[in-house]
Amino acid sequence: MFYYFPDNYMWSSAFNLALMAGGSLGEMNRWLSPLREGEPDGEAWGKAWAGMAEQQEAQAAEDLATGLRRSAGLRYLRASVYHASGERQIPPGPEKSASYRASLDAFEKAIELAPLNVERIEVDSPDGVLPGYLIPARTAEPAPVVIFYGGFDVTKEILYGFVEEEFVRRGISCLVMDSPGVGEPLRLRGVPSRPDYEVPTGAVIDYLETRADVDASRIGVMGISLGGYYAPRSAAFEPRIKACAAWGGIWDWGATWEKRWATRSKTVSVPWFQLPWVMGTDTMEAGLERVRQWTLVDVLPKLTQPLLIVHGENDRQVAVEDAHKAFEAAGSADKTLRIFTVAEGGAEHCQTDEPDPARQLIADWFGRRFGTLPERG
């Protein structure tokens, strides 16, 4: 992995994730280089990312004043990534809330000005309204759709940056979602995650079935990082899902967290506050107890749809052995395990070190399962 911050996995991982979502290396280096020396300073981290985002917003306003709408929109898009990247490391409180709302505001301006091929949608669910962005396929006929879930700390705005129009180019719509324990539900309404993710997924599918531009017979689900639990769990109990991809294999996430906490692992993506916050508990101990429910050990044998698991050989957040266990346990007749190696690149967690081959692989896989790409040639 590219360690922009020497010996600091968490911050370097965040740096790579921002690049993966569309950040600019030069802009990021200009604001973050002073943080590379000395002890990590959380306050300096937040100020650097906020300054980076605010500079782009100021330059976007200048572009807009001269009629350069698309240039302004793309600056706002990067500003949204920068606000979100800083926010991920900030504990719950006023600073985090302000940073998150700034990310939302910048993304909305990017939609309007760039403009982005995006429609904000809202789904009624047992957990309240779940917001998302539909990236619609440019087809005259109803198109297949893939629901895309984040994981432990990635919002729908970042998910958009991960895929943009790769599914659209293959004749597939993509719905990037904020769901329980993620994004707006967690940050604005305090809705924690839940182990039975087929419940919110069922509500999302109910919504999709109302749309004339969606082919409800070809609905897929994918998830990145902890989304590698959410997506397979949903598919195992929701027969309306026809294909499933885990961008990061999860086996027993509770066991993973027990090991992390026992060793005080330095290869985590965000500070320790994240677990009790996402779990909806007051203490780390209660969070560790609750997260034991996040296991696919008894779930994957029930999954029978086509399944793709993508993992990195050198994943230091979730062991590669977990991806192998998940693959072996899955009940799918059509299942594929793709391990990216150190030699070829993409060996880190969710291929943040070299993401494009994985992104293309996943979109192609869905294209073939849904008949929008030929099987060969």
Rank of each mutant, 00 (worst) to 15 (best):
13 S>D: 05
274 Q>L: 15
374 P>A: 06
133 Y>K: 10
83 H>K: 07
2 F>E: 13
311 H>T: 09
38 G>Y: 02
125 S>K: 10
137 A>K: 14
81 V>K: 11
310 V>S: 08
214 V>A: 04
365 W>P: 03
293 Q>T: 15
25 L>G: 00
188 L>P: 00
249 G>Y: 10
223 G>Q: 09
301 P>V: 08
205 I>D: 07
220 G>P: 11
361 L>M: 08
61 A>I: 07
8 N>M: 08
334 D>C: 01
39 E>G: 00
36 R>I: 09
238 E>W: 07
325 K>R: 15
34 P>A: 03
132 G>I: 12
213 D>M: 13
173 S>W: 12
336 T>H: 09
179 S>D: 10
136 P>I: 12
254 G>T: 06
232 P>M: 11
102 A>L: 05
7 D>S: 13
357 P>G: 03
334 D>F: 02
124 D>L: 14
210 T>Q: 15
139 T>I: 07
67 G>N: 06
88 R>P: 02
254 G>K: 05
166 E>G: 04
100 Y>P: 01
179 S>W: 12
351 Q>F: 03
335 K>G: 01
286 A>W: 03
244 C>W: 05
83 H>F: 15
84 A>D: 12
334 D>I: 01
247 W>A: 15
141 E>F: 05
50 A>P: 00
38 G>C: 03
198 E>G: 02
207 Y>P: 06
123 V>R: 10
24 S>G: 04
1 M>V: 10
201 T>R: 05
172 I>M: 14
62 E>C: 07
264 R>Y: 02
72 A>C: 08
112 E>G: 07
339 I>E: 01
350 C>H: 09
364 D>H: 00
304 T>W: 01
373 L>A: 01
163 V>H: 14
375 E>N: 05
360 Q>M: 00
36 R>E: 06
146 V>R: 11
358 A>P: 03
118 V>N: 06
80 S>G: 04
66 T>A: 08
239 P>D: 04
14 A>E: 09
132 G>M: 12
214 V>D: 03
355 P>E: 02
20 M>Q: 08
331 G>M: 07
